[in-house]
Simulated assay, not measured.
Amino acid sequence: MTSSLFSPLASPALVLRGGSYPYGERVPSRVRMRRTCWPDHADAMNVPLLPIAFVGQEYGCYVSSQGDIATFLPFDQLLMVDRDSFDVVSWHPRRDALP
């Protein structure tokens, strides 16, 4: 389970988007990986559970106000992923469409 600080509903992009935000008025909520991703510094890490987002898997995501995506992985792990490594498969509802 993700902490409330880092949850899809806590994504900064839901309330503020910078000038370079790439998704227009929409905010991603889930992504499907085009390729397997792991941290750039994985060879230097000494952790029992290396955060890996696997190709073909879908993950919930945290979206910064500039459009950077971090996937939610098991064991409360977040992994920043490059924009060319995923496809958005679902979006948050528009704020003005909420009751």
Rank of each mutant, 00 (worst) to 15 (best):
P74I: 05
G18C: 11
R35K: 14
M33S: 03
W38E: 09
L5A: 14
S7T: 02
Y21Q: 09
R30K: 11
S3W: 03
L98K: 00
T2A: 15
A53V: 04
Q66H: 08
M1E: 13
A10K: 08
A97C: 03
V55Q: 15
D84G: 14
Y23C: 02
P99K: 02
M45S: 04
R95S: 10
F54P: 00
A70R: 04
L78D: 11
P8Y: 00
Y23P: 04
C61N: 07
A97D: 12
C61A: 07
S3T: 13
D84P: 09
M1A: 05
A42P: 01
G60Q: 09
Q77T: 06
V63E: 01
M33F: 01
Y23D: 01
L16H: 08
P28G: 04
R26M: 10
M45A: 05
M1W: 07
M45H: 01
L49C: 10
D82F: 09
Y21A: 07
R83W: 12
Y62K: 13
P12Q: 13
S4L: 14
V89A: 06
E58Q: 09
P99R: 02
R35T: 08
D96E: 15
R30S: 11
P99C: 00
A13E: 00
V27R: 01
V31Y: 05
V15L: 10
C37S: 15
L73S: 08
L14A: 02
T71M: 10
A44H: 05
L16C: 07
D68Y: 07
L78V: 13
R34T: 08
V88S: 03
P99S: 03
P93L: 06
S4W: 10
P74H: 06
N46Y: 14
A70N: 14
A97R: 04
P28F: 00
R83V: 10
V47W: 02
T71P: 10
H92M: 07
G56R: 04
R32V: 14
L50H: 11
Y23F: 12
S3A: 12
V88D: 03
S11Y: 01
G67K: 02
D87W: 04
Q77P: 06
L5I: 09
A42C: 15
F86G: 07
A97M: 05
T2P: 06
D76E: 12
Y62W: 15
G67R: 04
